[in-house]
């Protein structure tokens, strides 16, 4: 009965943001040799878990969770799809170090901890009626995928949708099935380019920024969203500004190591900002002075 009361008044319980909720691995799919997507279902039993779960399942595109591999530690990972009626969290992660490698050997049925959702989100509502240019590099397509899915679900609300995706090699391309489907979708301009081709690759070879002079959008009425390595974003911003896009219409997702994710510990401090709570999504205007400063 308590459960039902809480269901109607979730504000009555405030889960501790430092306590992970328990989730079960429902599926595990290898996207590439080092990148995988997991879906997670809530399996906590307390009222606080319930409330935390609902918040996590309601996470907005661009937000992230702290995923806890028990015995190893926690890492911030963005949601790579919104939860639908299946009530599953989706995260796509690249194995780069101790914790993400431990995550890469999870099996269906294993348990992980989840804290979140944290941080700012992509301006999906703010893009209504505008052209949208999305530029993803490498694993950066993962945090942008929920936006793409949201835009395509309400396609007529937006102007042109242009997606640019740069990967290292054809083998490093993630979400290949989604990319095929998006390419077929009317009203979507999708360009994929790789830094290094292979014999079988018939697509573009070159950096993602070179596509920007060619794409069609109205600079006075466009929102751009960028996610990828900082250097790639820097050159992309340059190219977009050359096309006449202003800094407050360019959104970037920043990464710094973090621990608490609630703006206390200072690990992710970026100038006067904390990436975990002021970001990870910022307008370029807000952080322009901080990018590419060796000391930041």
């Amino acid at each position: 009965m308590i459960m039902e009361e809480i269901k109607y008044n979730p504000e009555a319980v405030k889960p501790d943001p430092m306590v992970p909720a328990i989730y079960r691995v429902e599926s595990f799919v290898n996207e590439t040799a080092d990148t995988f997507t997991v879906t997670l279902s809530p399996s906590g039993t307390t009222v606080a878990d319930w409330v935390a779960n609902q918040k996590q399942l309601d996470a907005a595109p661009g937000q992230f969770n702290m995923l806890y591999v028990f015995g190893m530690g926690e890492v911030p990972v963005s949601i790579s799809a919104g939860a639908d009626k299946n009530r599953l969290l989706t995260h796509t992660t690249r194995a780069v170090g101790a914790i993400t490698k431990a995550m890469s050997v999870l099996n269906v049925g294993d348990m992980v901890g989840v804290r979140g959702p944290f941080g700012s989100s992509w301006p999906v509502a703010g893009a209504k009626g505008k052209d949208v240019v999305l530029v993803a590099g490498g694993i950066g397509l993962a945090p942008l995928r929920p936006v793409i899915l949201a835009l395509l679900a309400r396609r007529s609300d937006f102007g042109r949708v242009v997606i640019l995706y740069g990967a290292r090699t054809p083998k490093d391309i993630i979400f290949s099935e989604d990319l095929k489907a998006w390419k077929k979708q009317p009203g979507v301009d999708l360009y994929i380019t790789v830094d290094r081709g292979t014999k079988a690759w018939r697509g573009s070879v070159g950096v993602v920024t070179r596509l920007i002079p060619q794409i069609i959008f109205d600079p006075a009425n466009t929102v751009a969203m960028l996610c990828g390595p900082e250097i790639m974003m820097h050159f992309t911003i340059d190219a977009l500004q050359k096309r006449g896009l202003s800094g407050n219409s360019i959104y970037v997702s920043m990464e710094r190591n973090m621990k608490c994710a609630v703006g206390l510990c200072g690990h992710c401090q970026f100038g006067q900002h904390f990436i975990c709570k002021d970001g990870p999504v910022f307008t370029y205007d807000k952080i322009a002075g901080l990018l590419r400063k060796p000391e930041i």
Partner: peptide, 20 residues
């Protein structure tokens, strides 16, 4: 210059998995 800039970006190999 544009081509050179692109080449420099390629040389930086920005998507490499540093762990490897």
């Amino acid at each position: 210059t544009f081509r050179l800039e692109q080449t420099r970006l390629l040389v930086m190999d920005v998507y490499a998995n540093r762990a490897n």
